[in-house]
């Protein structure tokens, strides 16, 4: 089992900001828009170095999405940024018509996704965004797991032609993926090979899955952990290869169970390889105020619950 350690923690949104700074220097077509949340999105460096390529829209997300769609018509690669709640659910129809159906090269890049937004509470804690975005034909949906992966994903999506939803978050989390990684859209990342159960995790739950793998190892269970950073298009081959080997699976995500990564995996397993699947996610509930750690524990989005679900999946496999 590969041992993962970290020396530093950072927020994934800072990875986005760092990626945007690189794009500012390397790709003259990249432009950024923001709806009055420049600091939260860590766009200061990009704006300082490329003031003419930044568009402040004020608190007007619908207009921001439309402007982003229009900018593509002049060959620009716009990154439309705000909190995940305001950048997806609030503007679903704008994304659907002006971006997805119109097949515009817009990158919707959103921070503060999920429960780990914390104290602001459920009004801001969207847990439905992955589902909303993955239902749109042609939309690529990406949820990286740490600072380095978010930076790499940000740079990668600029080269991908077509609409993308890039989701990241607010809290500081361990940095455990390599700084020089190559980010391949749609290619799952093998975190740890194993034989007894497959754990498919995305976003902040990848680190929790690594911790869960260590706990399981102490119990003599060899878990395979796979980072599904691209929810859509899903790396079906990686999912199937793993479950054919392990015979059961757990999905782990900071999202509603309905419509999330787990549902995408379930569709693959139902069609191609029946096997027990247990979900770690929020179960048909809104969030609430609290610290990120408190919320992740209360809603079961942590290593302890991943372990529990892994044991349950293995028991079902063996029953």
């Amino acid at each position: 089992m590969k041992k993962y350690t970290f020396t530093e923690k950072k927020d994934t949104r800072s990875g986005f900001g760092a990626g945007m700074q690189v794009l500012g220097q390397t790709n003259p077509n990249v432009v950024a828009l923001c709806a009055d949340l420049v600091g939260s999105l860590k766009l200061e460096a990009f704006i300082k170095e490329n003031p003419e390529r930044f568009f402040q829209t004020g608190i007007a997300e619908a207009n921001m999405i439309g402007i982003a769609a229009g900018l593509t018509i002049g060959g620009k690669i716009p990154f439309a940024t705000t909190f995940a709640n305001f950048g997806t659910g609030r503007v679903y129809d704008q994304i659907r018509q002006s971006v997805a159906y119109s097949n515009k090269n817009v990158k919707i890049a959103c921070s503060h996704a999920g429960l780990t937004l914390g104290e602001d509470g459920a009004t801001h804690q969207i847990l439905e965004d992955l589902g909303l975005m993955k239902m749109l034909p042609g939309m690529t949906v990406i949820n990286p797991c740490d600072y380095n992966q978010t930076k790499a994903a940000t740079i990668a999506v600029a080269d991908h032609v077509g609409p993308v939803y890039l989701r990241f978050g607010r809290p500081v989390v361990p940095i455990f993926t390599p700084a020089d990684q190559e980010f391949v859209i749609g290619k799952a990342w093998m975190v740890n090979e194993g034989t007894d159960v497959s754990i498919f995790a995305t976003g902040h739950l990848v680190w929790e899955s690594i911790l869960a793998g260590e706990i399981l190892a102490e119990k003599g269970i060899n878990a395979e952990i796979i980072n599904i950073h691209t929810i859509k298009p899903l790396d079906e081959e990686a999912v199937l290869a793993s479950v054919r080997k392990t015979g059961c699976a757990v999905s782990a995500e900071e999202h509603q169970i309905a419509g999330g990564l787990g549902d995408s995996i379930a569709q693959v397993l139902i069609r191609k390889h029946l096997a027990p699947l247990e979900y770690v996610g929020v179960n048909d509930s809104f969030g609430e105020s609290g610290t990120p750690a408190q919320l992740m524990e209360k809603y079961g989005l942590n290593a302890a619950n991943i372990v529990e679900k892994a044991l349950k999946a293995i028991a079902r496999k063996n029953s």
């Binding site: 207009n63 439309g66 402007i67 982003a68 229009g70 002049g74």
Partner: peptide, 27 residues
Amino acid sequence: VRIASGSLGQGLSVAIGAAEAKKLNGD
């Protein structure tokens, strides 16, 4: 045709984006 329209209220925003792109391009 450069954009889908039908669900109302979106075209002015799109036009602004295209106009901003023209300015960036010196067009």
